[in-house]
């Protein structure tokens, strides 16, 4: 019944809001850090479809991963030990519109800092250095990105810059874009594509889940992950950068890297920092 009332209010508010928009304060442009201090929480957009970074645990319904732990640690570092991070699920496809729409304060979701994105968003200092690679079925003839010729199909995820990168690196291959990494990996297993491309960290997570699939060919791009926020949120950006430095200095950052990536074969934890 609570939902009923809420929605009734929502429908009425919808009409009103449309009229009052011009007068209302825009959530995307208000000072996110000041607001976060007021409510003692930061609203983070995190992945729920990406093993190692942000994955839904079916048993608990909670999201777990490196990005999630980073979000929690950064929240406490910025707002103090009593503060809690609020986690909202995003995909590569939905994170930018959700951030720009003001549903989130900031996004920590395997997001590469690119010039195109910097035109519409601000980024923190990189917190993780990934590189794009390929995931294929064991024994696949595809060994490197050079093997992606005409007639091969490579699977990517909508809204990730890896689809643009692979189109540049292998212009003849057909790129199939799916809505999230869970769907993309399922499609690879179904044989919808010959390879799946995205950042190596994400691919190692998939390989860990199903060892019949392996990461090949090394990395062919550099993908520095940044924490994204709306343009003009300078106070929040500086606070996050400061907190990142503190976490690195205290060794908390290295502990988190080792917790999630320490036992991944072929993955050099030193490279990411």
């Amino acid at each position: 019944m609570k939902l009923f009332k809420q929605t009734l209010a929502m429908v009425v508010a919808l009409g009103l809001a449309a009229v009052l928009t011009a007068c209302g304060q825009d959530a995307a442009s208000r000072d996110a850090l000041a607001h976060a201090k007021e409510v003692n929480t930061i609203v983070w957009g995190v992945k729920a479809d990406t093993r190692l970074f942000g994955l839904m645990n079916v048993k608990t319904g909670k999201i777990q991963g490196f990005d999630v732990d980073m979000a929690r640690a950064l929240t406490k570092q910025i707002l103090g030990p009593s503060a809690e991070a609020t986690l909202v699920q995003v995909t590569s496809d939905t994170r930018v519109p959700m951030l720009k729409g003001g549903n989130l304060d900031t996004v920590i979701a395997t997001m590469t800092v690119t010039p195109e994105r910097q035109k519409v968003l601000d980024f923190s200092d990189p917190y993780f250095n990934a590189g794009q690679s390929l995931l294929v079925k064991k024994g696949s003839p595809i060994k490197t990105v050079a093997d992606l010729k005409a007639g091969t199909k490579v699977i990517g995820v909508q809204g990730s810059n890896s689809v643009d990168n692979v189109q540049k690196a292998a212009p003849k291959t057909t790129v199939l874009q799916l809505s999230d990494y869970a769907q993309a990996f399922t499609a690879l297993k179904s044989g919808q594509g010959d390879a799946l491309t995205t950042d190596n960290g994400i691919l190692y997570g998939m390989s860990k889940q199903d060892p019949n699939y392996v990461v090949v060919g090394g990395t062919f791009t550099k993908e520095p992950y940044g924490i994204a926020m709306n343009k003009g949120q300078t106070a929040l950006r500086l606070a996050i950068n400061q907190a990142l430095k503190e976490l690195k200095a205290s060794g908390a950052y290295t502990r988190l890297v080792n917790k999630w990536f320490g036992d991944i074969p072929g993955f050099d934890a030193k490279e990411v920092e």
Binding site: D93, V96, P97, K100, R117, V120, I155, Q158, G159, L176, Q177, L178, S179, A187, Q192
Partner: peptide, 18 residues
């Protein structure tokens, strides 16, 4: 399902132009 239809292209354009 990556079927190249209008909605699929819409998502791609939205991701390109933000």
């Amino acid at each position: 399902v990556a079927g190249f239809d209008l909605m699929y292209q819409a998502k791609i354009i939205a991701n390109l132009t933000f």
